[in-house]
Structures are given as structure tokens and as C-alpha cells.
Design a protein around this nucleic acid. Sequence first.
DNA 1: TGTACATCAGTGAACGCGCGTTCACTGATGTAC
DNA 2: TGTACATCAGTGAACGCGCGTTCACTGATGTAC
Lengths: 200, 200
Amino acid sequence: MAEPTQRRAETRQRILEAAGRLFREHGIDGVGVDAVMKEAGLTHGGFYFHFGSKEALAAEVSQSLLERAAKTWDEISRSGDRHAALERIVRYYLDPERVASAHCCPLTTLGPDVARRSTSRKAVGGALRGMLDALTRCLPGRKRQRALTALSTMVGAVVLARLADDPALAEAFLDAAADSVLPAGRAFNHTASEVEQEQV
Amino acid sequence: MAEPTQRRAETRQRILEAAGRLFREHGIDGVGVDAVMKEAGLTHGGFYFHFGSKEALAAEVSQSLLERAAKTWDEISRSGDRHAALERIVRYYLDPERVASAHCCPLTTLGPDVARRSTSRKAVGGALRGMLDALTRCLPGRKRQRALTALSTMVGAVVLARLADDPALAEAFLDAAADSVLPAGRAFNHTASEVEQEQV
DNA sequence: TGTACATCAGTGAACGCGCGTTCACTGATGTAC
DNA sequence: TGTACATCAGTGAACGCGCGTTCACTGATGTAC
């Protein structure tokens, strides 16, 4: 059956995904190696067979989560017309249900954690640029500056929506951000269920 | 000399400020009670004479940091003309030097940490609304929605600037955010040294 | 004014616990002859 | 084709350490008479 190196890679991937879930939910410092391994269905001792340290795992998790986002945005930005692509990205990113869950963008759940760790920060640079490139491609005028602002607005809105003590205020942040990023005149609609589930 | 209850209050304040510095720099989970007390010039045992638990300290630190910001914004928003007030708030908030330091806005350094702790989240709600009120007062048209967007853009830009691996990219986020939040035509200037140092 | 006692802020040793990491091991799978 | 050995993914006990919290204590300050 499964070639040995392939099995190893699969287990490694399972650990990476378990850590991705737990780190986003509790913060990197809020989750131990044993909890990650348990979530992956393993015992904690085997961790160091796959990763050199918890820091190395943190860097790789941040990188892989953001690269997945960048890849999805890139694909969407090249498909169909630009207005539809932008709306698809923004609508999914700011979907209130997703924002309230642990599946929202790692920039918003792990941003400060990543910023404090130089290895993680470096690991994430390429994907960050990739996300900006995709946004630039969709935005009217294709100006880099507009992409920088759009990403800032989206990230900030999600951070603030997660922090708000009141769901109405949370939705207000998300709605305002969508209105600001999407070209005027396009109504923003809450349900993102038609959009594919695995965008990031 | 110092009345007894006053001395107690002063020590308490010293702990609060020490924690404010360390929590913003290393995250709440990245700093122990003993480190906070040492930073305040005390031994760790006395901590529980002033606070019920580390969680209680975290909530109070978040609250006091944000309330100071809200108070400053409120004062600025009522002083002089609105355009100047807005520019003063935005320019200081997005000052690259301050963003690179640990003194930047707690929403950007502790946002996800606070969002995960319901006591901290509740403690912070009032100040968040206060910041929005102050922004609304300065913004052309005084529309709440514009304030929601402006705060999102500013918070996101600082999160992303701190996360960026390259200083040029960091400044690009901050510049783009300033251009977007300030009414068109007003050039943004990096040095915030003329602005008072203790704004937040 | 001076002594005796009470209060109170802060000390520092100690607690149980969970962390990140190491390591000797097991048992399943792959390879050699 | 069958046996003997090597490899390798994962186990689970153990390590030293630092965490959050407790507590008996000290020594300075304030109050009573």
C-alpha cells in the first residue's frame, strides 16, 4: 500500500492541519505540542520525528495556511471577470459566520503571533505578496496602493469583528468593510454559502 | 507622606503599566506573572494582593490601554477643526516608528488575544465604541459607517505592517492607509514627532 | 510624648501542574539472499 | 518462496523548567491610650 515516504508525508500533513486549527483558535502560545499531536490522533513523543521544534512548526503552519489563501486568491483573480472575482474574494473573506469560526484568515487570528516570531514572519512574506498581487489584479485600475488599502481594511474589519462584544457591531464592521472595498453600487450580501467552502 | 490607600493604588498602577508593556511586546500568554512583577520592581508573591488572577489582570490591562486611547481621541476630536483633528489621530496612529515599537495600539498587538478571552472582550467594548465615536466626529459627513471603515483600515494596516518582513512593504501599508482614511488631497507625512508622545 | 498594638504592603519559599524536549523502546513494513 | 535482518513511524516514560497560585512571614506605618 502507501509508499513509506508518502505515509510519513501524510502524517506530517495531518499534524500541520491539526496545529492550524488549534493555533488559530487558541493562539500559538495557548496550545502545547501534546495537544497538537492528540488532535492529529498521535502521541506527543513522535512530534520531533516530523518537526525540529515547536517554533519550526509555528513557522510552517503560518506559511502553509497563508500560501493556501494566496493560491486560492490567485486562481480566483484569474478566473472570469475581475468584478466577480473581487466580489467572490471579499464576500467570502468577510462572511460573518466564517469570521466567527476558527476558520477565518490566519492574518487576523495569528497576525501578532507571527509578527513576534522572526522565522514565522519570514516564512509568510511570499504569501502576503501573493495575496496583494491577486487583489491588485482584481481591483479597478490595478493599482498596488488600492490593494494595500483593501487588504488592510479587510484584515482590520475581521480583527475588530472578532473582538467586538456585540454581534451587531461585528456585522457592522464587516458590512462597512465590504462596502468600502467593493466598487460602489454593488450591494453586499451576507450568505457566502454558494462560494466554495475551502477558500481558506 | 503618601496616604496608605494611595500608595497601594500607585503600586497597582505600576503593575498595570508593566503588564501593558510586556503583554503588547510578547503577547499575554508569552509573559508570566513573575516577569510582570519584576518589570514593576516587585517580587511575584505580592501580585495576588492587587489582582485576583492573571486573567483579571489581562482584562484590566486591555481595558485601561484602550480607554486611554479612547480618551485621547475624544479630546482631540473636540479640539480645533475636524480636519486637523483627524489628521492628528491618523498620523500618530500610523507613524512607522511607533508602529515598529511596542507602544502601538493594543488593538493591533493584543486584538486576537483579547478576542479569545471573554472577560477581556467585554472589558474593552466601551472603549472601542468611544474610539468609533471620536472618529465619527472627525470624519466628513460624520457617518458611522465611515468610522467603522477607517478604524478597520488603520488597525489592519498596523497589523500588516508589523507582520511584513520588509520595512518598505510595512511603510507602504501605512502610507496607503493614511491616504485612504484622510480626505483626498492631504499629503501624509511620516514624522509624528511634533504630535505629543503620550497619545496611546 | 511615649509605648503597645493593629494594620497592611510586600517578601520569598513552596505547591502541583503542564510545558518543550529527549530517548530507549516496539512493532510493522521493506529488503537481501 | 521463506527466513533474517534493517529501517522506520510512532509510543510512552522521563527530564528539567517555568508557570499560576498559595501562604506563613516581615517590617514599616498608623492608631489608641
